[in-house]
């Protein structure tokens, strides 16, 4: 798994639960005193062991934890750069949804060895969309749930989200797509957050 993904998990744990919790989780995952480098590649088993240890430590399901991770990625100040990159997807929440088709290509354009699951958005009409997450990272759909929810806040949109498909805790069948049903109830529900094209995130 790419270091950026692992590093995102690490930042999520330390920013949300504190560095002590991170140490406890890496100990439980038998990694010792460990920190990820964002630009190196790690064995998938390391990520797997870490997530399992973290969920066990919190006593929460993997789906919930991954959804929180997705929310964190868009809303926490220490990962503001990522939110900005996602906002380049478009002016409105609908534009943003459509930009998800290119998300893995966009990621690869910036970091050639970062392979995210392919995303496929279908318009079902009447403000309803389905987003299919391709294989590669079991549970990625739950992360997308968090991202979609937090980006709705960011754009000031009101949405309903439902996760269908393999449950992240079952894990084994990573060939079956996870599907997210998105219902856009109102695209201008709240003011949302400003996005200034020219203001580079620190």
């Amino acid at each position: 798994m790419h270091g950026l993904v692992n590093r995102a998990i690490q930042s999520f744990v330390t920013d949300t639960y504190g560095p002590d919790r991170w140490r406890r989780v890496t100990e439980a995952a038998e990694l010792g005193d460990f920190e990820f480098e964002a630009m190196l590649i790690y064995d998938d088993a390391v990520t797997e062991a870490l997530l399992a240890a973290f969920c066990a430590d919190l006593g929460r399901s993997r789906g919930e934890v991954l959804e929180d991770l997705g929310t964190y990625l868009v809303s926490h100040p220490s990962v503001e750069a990522l939110r900005r990159l996602l906002r380049f997807g478009g002016d409105s929440y609908v534009d943003f949804l459509h930009s998800l088709d290119d998300l893995n290509d966009r990621a690869r354009l910036a970091v050639p060895d970062l392979h995210l699951p392919a995303l496929d958005l279908r318009e079902e009409g009447a403000g309803r969309y389905t987003l299919a997450c391709g294989p590669g990272m079991p549970g990625f759909g739950w992360v997308m749930m968090g991202i979609l929810r937090a980006m709705a806040d960011d754009y000031g949109a009101l949405v309903l989200l439902e996760h269908h498909g393999p449950h992240a805790d079952e894990g084994a069948d990573d060939e079956a797509d996870e599907v997210i049903a998105v219902t856009l109830i109102e695209s201008a529900f709240a003011a949302g957050r400003a996005f200034d094209l020219g203001a580079r995130a620190g």
Binding site: E37, M39, L85, F88, R106, L109, A110, V111, A201
Partner: peptide, 24 residues
């Protein structure tokens, strides 16, 4: 234009990470 801005910003974020990695 927007893709170019995206790339510039993504690349500088990535370069920043590489810079930190090099220092470490």
């Amino acid at each position: 234009a927007i893709e170019l801005l995206y790339l510039v910003e993504a690349k500088s974020a990535v370069m920043g990470e590489y810079g930190q990695l090099s220092r470490r």
